[in-house]
């Protein structure tokens, strides 16, 4: 077998120290994505640094922010009373992902870092610019039913597959990252990247950095929200299109609104133009429909995924409808 060294550490500091020592090292969290990629030969780290014992599993409110440690499991977050009460959109998005077994071991950091599910990326016999820059993109002229309609590049049209991240980008989350010298905090919407000319890069985490925690401001969006995931079967399938929608409504007027989409871009896709349009307007269907049309302005299909040009706005409308009518 392809041998690798397995290391275990109990502090973030030592984990980062081990990481920088070796550019072929990788953190091992739940392993639900990394191990699969190793089995398929997509990646072959020489060192696995098991970070599951690093105490970063906290879920707590500090001031007006909710902190979630990078190693909290997807189910721990989804089921936590604080999250269910104050950030139910996040809880719902997590519940819509993967299966109960996977969510039990998958972590917040790992979920952010999971790679695309593009079939060409997984098959080392096929061309893929993300896996092997310069080999071409198998999907653009191939099977691209699952692929992106926004922010695509000539190099890569893959989507980021996460559900959790769609809710996080909608909720204005921030990410705390650390390297050996210290911590930095970035907006969640700046964490993931578009493919551009560097499809091999999914995000802006530097090679010497570790994800430490999320900080999410509490909000008034816990009443009227919905995470609507459209997929090929009712559970345990990645999104064709998903929409995270949350509204703050007063006298049927929209005070605040958050909208983000999954399954449509190389990163979780925040719908800022639609949000701006809806703010201050009445929470009625015709406004939802206009907001949905606004969201689609720069959309482009690649054949197999053309249906998303219709599905995406429809899903936005339905998610807003369901968010509004939530009792």
């Amino acid at each position: 077998m392809i041998n690798f060294q397995y290391l275990r550490t109990t502090t973030a500091k030592s984990a980062i120290a081990l990481l920088v020592k070796d550019k072929n090292a990788k953190f091992l969290a739940g392993g639900t994505n990394l191990i699969d990629l190793m089995k398929r030969g997509v990646t072959a780290p020489e060192k696995l640094i098991d970070i599951n014992h690093v105490p970063l599993k906290q879920i707590e409110q500090i001031g007006n922010k909710i902190h979630i440690g990078a190693l909290a499991s997807n189910s721990a977050v989804a089921d936590h009373p604080l999250i269910k009460e104050k950030l139910p959109l996040l809880s719902w998005a997590l519940q819509a992902g993967a299966s109960a077994q996977l969510r039990n071991v998958a972590t917040v950091g790992g979920n952010m870092m999971q790679r695309t599910r593009c079939g060409y990326f997984y098959d080392i016999e096929m061309p893929c610019n993300k896996r092997q820059p310069g080999t071409g993109c198998g999907a653009i002229e191939g099977f691209n039913r699952m692929h992106a309609i926004f922010g695509t590049s000539e190099q890569c049209i893959a989507v980021h597959p996460s559900d959790m991240c769609v809710a996080l980008v909608a909720l204005d989350a921030e990410v705390v990252l650390a390297n050996a010298k210290g911590e930095r905090k970035i907006s969640f919407k700046d964490f993931h990247r578009l493919a551009g000319d560097t499809p091999q890069l999914d995000n802006n985490l530097k090679v010497d950095e570790m994800i430490i925690r999320l900080e999410i401001p509490v909000n008034n969006l816990a009443k009227n929200y919905h995470y609507l995931k459209v997929r090929d079967r009712a559970s345990y399938a990645f999104a064709l299109v998903s929409v995270a929608a949350a509204l703050e409504i007063s006298n049927n007027k929209i005070i605040d609104v958050r909208l983000a989409m999954g399954g449509v871009a190389h990163k979780p896709w925040r719908l800022t133009a639609s949000e701006n349009f809806l703010k201050g307007k009445e929470a009625i269907l015709s406004n939802f429909e206009q907001a949905a049309q606004l969201a689609m302005q720069d959309a482009k299909g690649f054949g197999g995924n053309d249906f998303k040009l219709k599905l995406a706005p429809n899903t936005i409308i339905e998610a807003l409808n369901l968010a509004k009518s939530k009792a």
Binding site: M126, G142, F143, R233, A234
Partner: peptide, 25 residues
Amino acid sequence: SIIDHRYGRYINNNFADYHVPVNAD
């Protein structure tokens, strides 16, 4: 079962992508 006919290879040859019904269906 989906094949990319340019290569003659299956694209969705795993249980995440070949969808057999689950309980919720």
